[in-house]
């Protein structure tokens, strides 16, 4: 497993306590899991995502991600409506391991309250939190 110093944590996105990330894309927000989470999970074999059109409140479970021997719930970091999901993960769940921030994104939402984005952690705060977990 990676040391904290080895993690790839981009500056231009925000992070949630459960290791999801969120990034603005014009009007919508893309969401996935970060390098720390994918590294902890190991080889991901399946990602279960919701139907576009469904709605979730901040902190609700929106799907699951599975490795060979573990299932982890995915919690939505902002309330909103799902406008798109990453269909490529159906056949290639390994994208989450190889490229968690680009090809391995999971859902795209239309946020109810854009201010919720600002309440998420920036890279510096998130790194502090991770150090606390060690």
């Amino acid at each position: 497993m990676k040391e904290i110093s080895e993690l790839n944590l981009p500056d231009d996105i925000h992070y949630a306590e459960d290791h999801e990330w969120a990034r603005w894309e014009d009007e919508t927000i893309k969401i996935g899991i970060d390098d720390y989470a994918q590294d902890q999970l190991g080889d991901i074999v399946f990602v279960d995502l919701p139907q576009p059109g469904s709605r979730f409140e901040k902190g609700e479970e929106f799907g699951t991600v599975e490795s060979v021997k573990a299932v982890s719930e995915l919690y939505i970091p902002l309330s909103g409506e799902i406008v798109a999901i990453n269909k490529d993960l159906e056949d290639s769940p390994e994208l989450v391991n190889h490229d968690p921030y680009e090809d391995g994104w999971m859902i795209e939402i239309k946020p109810d309250d854009p201010r919720e984005y600002e309440q998420l952690m920036d890279k510096r705060t998130y790194l502090e939190m991770l150090k606390g977990l060690e």
Partner: peptide
């Protein structure tokens, strides 16, 4: 596909 099973997913 053992993630469907009890010893991993427990109550789910």
């Amino acid at each position: 596909l053992s993630t469907r099973e009890q010893h991993i997913r427990r109550e789910k």
